[in-house]
């Protein structure tokens, strides 16, 4: 049934690499230690293509395409680190910081936050767009975990892991545009959720301090993600 995968050659940042047509640009780049920043992407979950940080330039294509969702094509020439891309990435991260209330000094994820480290990597040293300072809610109703909407970047990793791995689909997104936010069940408190299994997968995949374990102090929240590659591998072997 399965045929030999079709091997093709493409160029990423001047390096000639081989890939199959089912591989995304991001997969191949990561395999070869070419760093493309991502936020919504997480190995083991479906691709979402929403953070727009992994955008790359492809020769002959006027539009920038997301490396996580774009498949490799024969003779494709990809650039991942041009000045133009760097500028856009910086601006996107600045937009994120200005969107909600990201105050690292009082965050339990300080020092172990993907948004924070990405900002450092991309050279964001100030935010040029005006801060919104929205008034957002905390949900501490769950016995073990807490949701802090101030720190959410709407990557939907929690939504996807809950739906695709745990199979509970407790999380989803409500509202649109700037008012979009995650919620549990049909907008009940997390602690009252009937579908939540308290597995904590959502907490572990969350890139920031939006979903955390209760009882952690500033900079104590370190996320454990080993379960995800393990589960994906086991499930792939035993579908």
């Amino acid at each position: 049934m399965s045929t030999q995968p079709h091997i093709i050659t493409l160029t990423i940042d001047g390096r000639e690499l081989s890939a199959t047509v089912d591989d995304s640009i991001l997969t191949i780049a990561r395999q070869h230690k070419i760093d493309i920043p991502t936020l919504c992407f997480l190995e083991g979950l479906s691709t979402w293509g929403a953070c727009r940080l992994c955008l790359v330039e492809i020769e002959g294509t006027p539009k920038l395409l997301s490396a996580c969702t774009t498949k490799c094509v024969e003779n494709m020439v990809v650039k991942t680190d041009t000045e133009r891309l760097k500028q856009h990435r910086k601006m996107i991260i600045e937009l994120l910081f200005a969107e909600r209330n990201h105050i690292c000094s009082v965050c339990v994820s300080n020092g172990a936050c993907e948004l924070q480290s990405l900002a450092q990597e991309c050279g964001v040293d100030h935010v040029s767009v005006p801060y919104r300072y929205p008034s957002l809610q905390l949900d501490s109703s769950h016995d073990l975990f807490r949701l802090d909407n101030n720190r959410c970047i709407l990557c939907t990793r929690c939504v996807r892991v809950c739906d695709e791995i745990e199979g509970a689909h407790t999380w989803d997104v409500a509202g649109r545009g700037i008012d979009a936010h995650v919620l549990t069940d049909l907008n009940t408190l997390w602690g009252d959720s009937e579908s939540c299994t308290s597995c904590g997968k959502c907490v572990q995949v969350c890139p920031t301090g939006a979903l955390v374990q209760k009882g952690t102090a500033v900079a104590e929240m370190h996320k454990q993600r080993e379960f995800l590659p393990y589960l994906t591998k086991m499930r792939r072997n035993h579908p």
Binding site: G49, R52, A98, E99, P130, V173, G175, G177, I178, A180
Partner: peptide, 21 residues
């Protein structure tokens, strides 16, 4: 555009808000 943005991607969700502002 700001009120019709779905909110999925960051540039449109936050960018249209900032531009409108």
């Amino acid at each position: 555009c700001m009120s019709e943005s779905c909110g999925k991607c960051i540039p449109c969700r936050v960018g249209t808000y900032q531009m409108h502002n």
